[in-house]
Design a protein around this nucleic acid. Structure first.
Lengths: 152, 152
DNA sequence: GACCTCTCGTTAACTTGTTAATAATATTTT
DNA sequence: AAAATATTATTAACAAGTTAACGAGAGGTC
């Protein structure tokens, strides 16, 4: 593919931040996907299970926020996970709009079984990339995510 | 939401890199989405148009790679854009599996009309975040995306 | 030329992303 | 208390993400 000159004042599309973020995310996830899908979960389902496992009991809005998924996605994911026996829900007694979600024993077993493998994958990525660069990247990403810019 | 202690050796799920990347991406995109959707495009359609506009004529595999989208997505996006008159395609004469994609005059006009606004949004984000941090982040992201780790 | 293999792009099926609307319940206002 | 407003979660509709299969060409190999 030949590269043509870019008009002044423009940065090449390929250097756009969203594309760089997408590529980086894909590079990281690609190491986990085989493990996760071998267990019969999607990446997002796995994320939801990990968040519930860590913070249970948790309500659905908080779950969506912590796992960086939209509410409709979480609704669908929970329906699937509940049907398959990986999570349970319980209506709040004082506010019946709210549900409290928990993982089941079945999930705890899966988490325990995969824990070691996940940790190794994580450590290998960090080691290969460099721990200090990893920390620096995490810092920058969080800072960018928390940026508040007025839209005028 | 109360925070409970995390088992040893585990990093909190919320600190996972994919979630941080997703949040950062959302923070950036949220500034463009209103502008793009006001023009009747999705974020991905817009990305595809920008890539074609910059590299035309371009084949579909290269287009997918440059815009960080999967082939099936690009196929669907091109069908939609072609139907609406924003792109044209032409079969390669020597290899009839391949098509060459170009933008139409209609697209060039839209790009021209939105160019100034896009540039301002971009500059505001960079200014707010800090140009040196922006460059450092871009560097780290590209390096992470290009990491090759063996999967054993 | 017949066969095998590889590549380009599309289709299919299912899950998630995205936005808007909706139902049900809580809270606030008057 | 009645009415207006806000919050929690689900549903709906369409676009894109993901994986696998498929069709149609192109490129070797015999």
């Amino acid at each position: 593919m030949e590269h043509r000159p870019i008009p002044d004042g423009y940065r090449s599309v390929k250097d756009a931040l969203p594309i760089a973020l997408t590529r980086a995310r894909e590079a990281v996830i690609s190491h986990w996907r085989p493990v996760i899908s071998a267990r019969g979960f999607t990446e997002q389902q796995w994320r939801v299970l990990r968040v519930i496992n860590e913070y249970e009991p948790i309500d659905i809005s908080t779950l969506a926020s912590f796992s960086a998924l939209h509410m409709p996605s979480v609704t669908r994911i929970l329906q699937s996970l509940e049907k398959r026996g990986y999570v349970s829900r319980e209506r709040d007694l004082t506010d019946s709009r709210r549900s409290w979600i928990r993982v089941t024993q079945k999930t705890r077993k899966v988490m325990y079984d995969e824990g070691e493998k996940s940790r190794r994958i994580n450590e290998r990525i960090i080691a290969e990339f460099g721990e200090s660069k990893f920390e620096e990247l995490s810092r920058l990403l969080n800072e960018l995510a928390d940026l508040r810019i007025d839209r005028n």
